[in-house]
Nucleic acid binder design. Structure first.
Length: 936
DNA sequence: CTACCGCATGGCG
DNA sequence: GCGCCATGCGGTA
């Protein structure tokens, strides 16, 4: 049985608070909250008790005058001990205080084991029971018997607390005093279930409501004298009003934050050292998420738990005590660096492994672990609920996923730089640099929640200097500040330009922020947008370019991952890949070994650029246009011959990895004969005869009759062609067995509206028609990107790579592209001419002498020299005569592939419809543009 | 004129 | 509808 242990040492000031507390307790019960988290519900502001009468509000017996002679009761939140009269003290010591005085109050529950009544509703009895994971309570006796409290199972509250989210605000916390002072021996009703270590004692003395999980991430700290308002909005008001006083800011924040034990909380504790309520504000803002809210709710709701025994701490032998600073740290004092809060303030040098990202599975002091967000699936979350997984995922869940740190162990170790083995690195967040971030402005916009969670609290827009160390150990000082923005804040790091430049970061690269504890250093790592340095990538792609086909985008059945292919084609799928492509194209990638350093960054599979930045997306539109063709191209690829793939499992997806680049299959045409038999038609490279092949035949790019192993009789070029051209003409156009036929048709029909590379791809397809028998040309069912496809998409090397097509090149692709481009331009010209003609006609009604159609001709003529290809007036006329449908255009333009080279290419239309100038389709694109502009 | 600063705007989730 | 945030833009040095 899992047991939730109360680990807080918060004392209620008075049992008289039970009313309030009970409300919370009952509320908890009524809401079937399975667990209780201890909370300080501080409805009482009377923390200092100097009673001269019995502290029991129902007694009020005068106490003996010398305080030393008074009998002690429970520990108050102030740290003092309630003075009781003899009678009440005896009752307290005998463990029946609540039965005597609170029997009519709410908050009574029965021990799940023995059925004994336990008063869970007030501070007095808080140590007499333990909370069970499954809900309910056990009395201490029973809990002791079943004390198989696996550390991992203890205090897994933060997860379950999320179930209580909605009612947080029902328990406005009020000010209270920090508990300081005597300790647990005072807990008469708290049998020492567990021994208490000195450190724990120390903790208790420091009033840190450490709700320690074994991984030390769950903490709840009591605040100092501060106010936690019921509504977060009010924090705004408070935030601007510094609250003075000797506050335990960390504790306060933790409490205010209500995020018991999540990374943010601990981080707050680490970073936030302001002596004002801004801390509260900020931390509470973070609590906007339901789970956090719930946390606070539960915190507030269970006053009983405010008193806890150190025994609870003992329940967590692995507890990593992240002690808290006992004094407030002024914001200003925290300048340059991360303040002392990071120090292990319990006085020990014990590493504070409260890293939210630290799994409790960590076994040693050097625990640099990180679980990628991908692990946060329901199952894992369930595990987390059981306390078996680092809980910081919850903390991180408060950040947008794109800010989740994706730092690998390798990165972490790099960051740690072989430093203190006791140091613990806590990945905080990361951010992909926007154009603004990477620009010259020198301002890095920080995600608000990240800034508020992980950076020092700032109450003034000017903020404070923040020292950040990069992975190489160099210190940078940025100004961490904010701008008021829409009643909110916009956090920025100023002065990042030198650092960005030093790291040679570009928009799209990612900076990561981590923290090394106990030093508390902020570490700024980075990850180039260059793909391929990550471990994951290395798993998926062991060679070369680092491009791989992410499983999540390759879930359409394409499981072959040809190394180098993506790069070689500059075809990109994911936003990051697009980025990579873009940057690679721009030559900003892989500068001087930075790519090696970037190995500390793990390229995220999903990337986070495209989802947010429209601008960046726009910049990568060229790449996006390639997406389809890439996906399709993948299907066209054939494993390299005589190459045995190695199967790599990446995130559950099997990939066949080939050390060699794929080959492009021979273009074939699926068809069905009269008997319904499906087969392919392939053309011999040598004799151009068409051979029938099985549908599953995969042909190399160059295929000849001699390769016709399926039909030995026709394995020689001398063998007669089985089908006549007429038959071919009939069969090929009505390919019923061809996959994706309908799609092809649709695409073909829609070619007219396509643009950019897509258009080019279509263009190229048209050009491929040259391989078809003449009679098969006029089809709108042209198989697109089929095996053997030699379209521009499939054969075009990436930008700047591979042989460039000369302007005079008359290869299929070039001719097709030119032809298509010309057609497009002509079409546009025609439209424009018509438009102008229409306008002219309208104008002619007023000015009869105007005429415009000549303009188009002028435009064409003026550009004739650009392509350097003979013009064909006939063809031009053909197009001008109104080919607006791509199929029609294709039919007319390519009645025979053999005639394609004769197609007029010299008509140069206006440039305004250049197919996606941004699309970097490589040399072919340039060729096209060159052709259009007349520039070489 | 440029760089910087601070705020405003608007797209987007 | 709201908040975040990327970026624009005017003011200022």
């Amino acid at each position: 049985m899992l047991i939730i242990v109360l680990t807080f040492s918060i004392l209620m000031t008075s049992p008289g608070m039970c009313g309030f507390l009970i409300c919370g307790w009952v509320d908890l019960i009524s809401s079937l909250v399975p667990f209780l988290l201890v909370v300080m519900s501080s409805s009482s502001s009377a923390a200092v008790v100097t009673a001269k009468i019995c502290f029991n509000s129902q007694c009020k017996e005068p106490l003996p005058d010398p305080p030393s002679t008074r009998r002690k009761g429970w520990r108050l939140r102030s740290g003092e001990i309630a003075d009781l009269c003899d009678r009440c003290s005896c009752s307290f010591e005998q463990g029946n205080f609540c039965e005597s005085f609170h029997s009519d109050d709410g908050g009574w529950r029965n021990c799940e084991t023995c059925g004994k009544r336990v008063h869970c509703g007030c501070v007095v009895s808080v140590s007499t029971y333990v909370l069970l994971d499954a809900g309910g309570v056990d009395c201490v006796a029973c809990a002791r018997k079943s004390l198989v409290m696996a550390p991992n199972q203890v205090a897994s509250s933060p997860m379950f607390m999320s179930q209580q989210a909605p009612e947080r605000r029902e328990f406005p916390a009020k000010s209270w005093k920090p508990v300081s002072g005597p300790i647990f021996g005072q807990w008469r009703q708290a049998p020492h279930m567990w021994n208490m270590t000195s450190a724990q004692s120390d903790l208790q003395q420091r009033l840190s409501y450490e709700f320690d999980r074994p991984n030390c991430v769950e903490k709840l700290a009591p605040g100092g004298r501060y106010s936690i308002l019921a509504h977060e909005k009010k924090f705004e008001n408070i935030s601007e009003k510094p609250i003075t006083g000797n506050l335990n800011n960390v504790a306060r924040e933790r409490y205010a934050n209500g995020k018991v034990g999540i990374d943010a909380a601990s981080t707050f504790g680490a970073f936030r050292g302001e002596g004002n309520a801004d801390t509260v504000q900020d931390s509470c803002r973070l609590v906007g998420d339901s789970d956090s809210v719930s946390t606070r709710k539960s915190v507030n709701a269970d006053p009983c738990s405010t008193s806890s025994s150190g025994a609870n701490l003992d329940a967590h032998p692995n507890s990593c005590v992240n002690s808290l600073p006992s004094s407030a740290i002024k914001e200003d004092s925290s300048s340059l660096g991360l303040p002392a809060v990071f120090q292990s303030t319990n006085g020990s040098k014990e590493p504070t492994r409260f890293s939210a990202n630290q799994s409790q599975s960590q076994t040693g002091p050097l625990s640099k672990q990180f679980y990628p967000p991908s692990v946060i699936d329901p199952e894992v979350q369930s595990q987390m609920r059981n306390g078996k997984t680092r809980v910081d995922n919850r903390a991180r869940s408060q950040l947008l996923p794109r800010y989740w740190p994706r730092i690998t162990d390798q990165e972490l170790q790099q960051i740690s730089g072989g430093g203190d083995s006791n140091s613990v690195i806590t990945p905080l967040f990361e951010k992909m640099l926007s154009a603004s971030d990477a620009g010259r402005i020198g301002r890095l916009v920080l995600p608000k929640k990240c800034a508020e969670a992980y950076f020092p609290t700032i109450s003034q827009p000017e903020g404070l200097p923040l020292k950040v160390q990069d992975a190489s150990g160099k210190d940078w000082v940025f100004q961490f500040r904010y701008w008021p923005n829409n009643n909110s804040r916009m956090y920025v790091l100023e002065g990042v330009t030198p650092c960005i430049q030093a790291m040679q970061l570009q928009a799209g690269d990612t900076v990561t922020f981590s923290r090394i504890d106990p030093e508390g250093k902020l570490i700024m790592g980075f990850r180039k947008a260059s793909c391929g340095s990550s471990e994951q990538d290395s798993q998926a792609v062991k060679s070369g370019n680092g491009f791989s086909t992410p499983p999540e985008i390759d879930n359409k059945g394409t499981t072959k991952d040809f190394k180098g292919n993506a790069e070689s084609r500059n075809l990109i799928n994911t936003p990051e890949q697009r980025n990579c492509s873009k940057f690679a194209n721009e030559g900003v990638l892989q500068k001087d070994g930075l790519s090696a350093r970037s190995s500390q960054g793990t390229r995220r599979k999903g990337g986070n650029l495209g989802s947010k930045s429209k601008r960046l997306r726009i910049e990568n539109e060229d790449s996006m246009e390639l997406k389809l063709t890439w996906e399709e191209a993948q299907q066209l690829l054939r494993p390299p011959p005589n190459c045995v793939p190695s199967v790599v499992l990446v995130e559950g997806h099997e990939f066949e990895e080939y050390e060699e680049a794929p080959v492009l299959g021979k273009r074939t045409y699926f068809t069905t004969n009269q008997s319904g038999e499906n087969y392919q038609l392939a053309q011999c490279e040598d004799c151009s005869k068409w051979r029938r092949l099985p549908v599953d035949a995969l042909l190399p790019s160059r295929w000849t009759c001699s390769n016709n192993t399926w039909d030995p009789e026709r394995s020689l070029c001398s063998a007669a062609q089985e089908l006549s051209l007429e038959q071919l003409a009939e069969l090929i156009p009505c390919k019923t067995g061809a996959p994706k036929r309908s799609k092809v048709k649709v695409e073909s029909d829609n070619i007219e509206v396509s643009d950019g590379l897509d258009t080019l791809a279509n263009l190229a397809i048209l050009g491929e028609g040259e391989n078809l028998p003449p009679s098969s040309q006029p089809t709108t069912k042209h198989p697109r990107h089929r095996p053997g496809c030699t379209c521009i998409v499939c054969i075009q090397p990436p930008s700047g790579k591979g042989p460039k097509h000369k302007q005079s090149c008359t290869c299929n692709v070039c001719l097709t592209v030119k032809r298509r481009f010309r057609t497009l331009m002509l079409r546009r010209e025609k439209r424009q001419s018509e438009k102008e003609a229409e306008t002219a006609r309208k104008q002619q009604k007023q000015q009869p002498n105007q005429s415009s159609p000549a303009k188009a001709q002028v435009g064409s003529d003026s550009l004739k020299s650009g392509l350097g290809v003979n013009n064909s007036p006939h063809k031009a006329m053909t197009n001008e005569e109104g080919i607006s449908d791509e199929g029609v255009e294709r039919r007319r333009a390519s009645p025979s592939p053999l005639k394609a080279p004769q197609i007029d290419l010299n008509i140069q239309p206006e440039r305004e419809e250049e197919p996606s100038p941004k699309s970097d389709s490589g040399s072919m694109m340039r060729l096209l543009q060159d052709a259009a502009t007349g520039t070489p």
